[in-house]
Design a protein around this nucleic acid. Structure first.
Length: 290
DNA sequence: GCAAGCCTGACC
DNA sequence: GGTCAGGCTTGC
């Protein structure tokens, strides 16, 4: 599942393999993954050179340029759940669910987009569009300051887990790293975001950065089917503390890891290290227990 | 039947 | 506005 570390790994891989190369031709095998007009998509990218690779949260943008003074265009890319970007020799057979192929240079190699579940998308953008797209996201989880994070939590009544997954608030966290960061910070995923006090905010802020940086260093997590652009899996999986470890002993205290659905997402946590916060009962009223 | 990211829409 | 459930898709 591509979250910030996996997308950053893809971005770096593309920087290494396709930066400065031109897209000679585009083959669209399944137009359903293209957002907006398909013809415009082709026009936006064909015959252009990839001049930079940007990322905000889980969104990638390939900056494209032609020799003359035509305006810049961008190819925005979201991997969704099973999206995969691979650079492969053109003669290697395309695996199933390959939706878009871009011939690089003279067509010896291809940049391929594959996505069995098609939750991902490609979109052609003008400079203005890409500003808007990136602008609709909260600060990137690795760029965000403690002040921005405090503001994101301030006054929020919902579960912190849901807030961490909200890309308009913080961009880059998905289910895996949200659970891992909450474990590191010893915060129960159902805690009301606005109720987390100063020290808790600082712990969580640092935990998010620590978990993401470590995962970037290890090229991400291949829990199911994620690979980088060369087809290699990530190495973070053995470092997972709670995600996908339901019923297994906590690596810190040996209590059994629990799973609970919060905001429609499965959440993994240690009931001992991340105790459910006590509700402060209003004076004179009986306290509800659950 | 479940998992995921993200969009839509219902509800307060 | 904020919050969260539902639906999309397909391999396990």
């Amino acid at each position: 599942m591509p979250e910030l570390p996996e997308v950053e790994t893809v971005r770096r891989g593309l920087e290494r393999r396709v930066l400065g190369r031109s897209i000679a031709a585009i083959e669209i095998l399944n137009p359903l993954v293209i957002r907006g007009d398909v013809k415009a998509f082709r026009r936006c990218a064909e015959g252009r050179t990839i001049v930079s690779l940007r990322r905000k949260g889980k969104t990638l943008a390939l900056e494209l340029r032609r020799e003359n003074s035509e305006p810049l265009t961008f190819l925005a890319l979201r991997l969704g759940m099973t999206g995969q970007v691979v650079v492969a020799p053109a003669q290697i057979p395309r695996p199933p669910h390959t939706h878009v192929c871009m011939a690089l240079d003279y067509g010896r190699e291809e940049l391929r987009y594959r996505d069995p579940r098609r939750f991902g998308m490609l979109r052609c953008c003008s400079a203005e569009d890409i500003e808007k797209l990136f602008g609709s996201l909260g600060p990137d989880a690795l760029e965000m300051t403690q002040q921005e994070f405090d503001q994101a939590l301030q006054g929020r009544s919902g579960a912190v887990k849901g807030l961490l997954l909200n890309q308009q608030v913080i961009a880059g966290l998905g289910n895996i790293y949200a659970d891992e960061a909450l474990f590191e910070a010893r915060i129960h995923p159902r805690t009301r975001a606005g109720a987390i006090a100063g020290p808790g905010r600082r712990h969580l802020y640092r935990a998010i950065r620590r978990v993401l940086r470590r995962a970037v260093d290890l090229q991400g997590t291949s829990f199911r089917d994620y690979t980088d652009i060369d087809g290699n899996p990530g190495n973070f999986e053995p470092r997972l503390r709670v995600y996908g470890r339901t019923g297994k002993p906590c690596r810190r205290c040996r209590a059994l890891i629990r799973r609970m659905v919060i905001c429609g997402r499965s959440s993994h946590f240690c009931p001992h290290c991340q105790p459910r916060p006590r509700k402060i009962a209003p004076a004179g009223k009986p306290r509800k227990t659950r």
